[in-house]
């Protein structure tokens, strides 16, 4: 592949006290890739994503975003974060703001966009995730699926170079999952670089360009969806996939 690397992770280590959660993870994510991260609960998937935008500070190794070392003491983390979109399992919409307000806030305060620009872009992004008719709704007036799509629009409005998704459909009622996955699929088609932690195997198979299987803080196996799903090499991967099916 000739695409430039957007995220590079080198020998990443993270401990919480004495608990070592990441034990040396290496990963390159090239532009346009959709990397799906699988693994059992507690294997460190969320921690890995959170290290990318420094919501967790790594205890060892390096994280690079394009040509910036994110975990370097001289790096202004906020400047990096505005280019790395993140969507959380629990949506984390700002409840005191409308859908539009949610999408506008960081555009105004971080990117210093004019009110008009921010509003126009907010509406564009909300339409893109299928919520053109909900721009003035408050989060409490939206379904979980709608809230999650607002959260995606909020991240997209910042023109991120990469998007991190951490089990974004896990908190949703089954009938609402589809809408969110569709938005993500569209995003992937449009060429967005994505790191996706999910238990949606269908999505991983259809949309993922690469599947990474993690267990106990290390990457156990990785490859194309076909390789990993149809012909897993590692026992733990087999075991995990067996359970899922």
């Amino acid at each position: 592949m000739t695409e430039p690397v957007v995220v590079r992770i080198k020998d990443l280590r993270k401990s919480f006290g004495t608990l070592e959660v990441l034990k040396g993870v290496d990963m390159d994510v090239q532009r346009g890739e959709v990397v799906v991260i699988l693994g059992p609960s507690g294997s460190g998937k969320s921690t890995l994503l959170r290290c990318v935008n420094q919501l967790e500070a790594p205890t060892g190794g390096e994280v690079w975003f394009e040509d910036i070392q994110v975990n370097h003491p001289d790096t202004n983390v906020n400047r990096v974060r505005e280019k790395i979109g993140m969507v959380f399992q629990s949506f984390n919409l700002f409840p005191h703001l409308t859908a539009k307000g949610n999408v506008m806030l960081a555009q105004r305060k971080v990117l210093k966009r004019s009110k008009d620009d921010a509003e126009r872009i907010a509406i564009e992004q909300l339409e893109r995730v299928g919520l053109g008719d909900r721009v003035d709704y408050y989060p409490s007036q939206l379904s979980g699926g709608q809230q999650q799509r607002v959260a995606i629009a909020r991240a997209l409005a910042m023109d991120p170079h990469v998007m991190l998704f951490d089990e974004v459909t896990s908190a949703l009622d089954p009938e609402l999952v589809r809408g969110v996955l569709d938005v993500m699929k569209e995003l992937a088609k449009a060429g967005m670089t994505m790191l996706v932690v999910t238990h949606e195997m269908g999505f991983a198979r259809d949309v993922g360009t690469r599947v990474v299987f993690m267990d106990e803080g290390v990457i156990v196996e990785e490859g194309t969806p076909t390789e990993v799903f149809d012909n897993p090499q590692n026992e733990r991967t087999k075991d995990f996939l067996g359970h899922i099916k």
């Binding site: 906020n78 974060r81 959380f88 984390n92 806030l105 305060k109 971080v110 990117l111 910042m158």
Partner: peptide, 14 residues
């Protein structure tokens, strides 16, 4: 919730 702060941080807010 801590998530509120994280969401704000992840958008680049100080």
């Amino acid at each position: 919730s801590k998530g509120q702060f994280e969401a704000a941080s992840s958008l680049g807010m100080t």
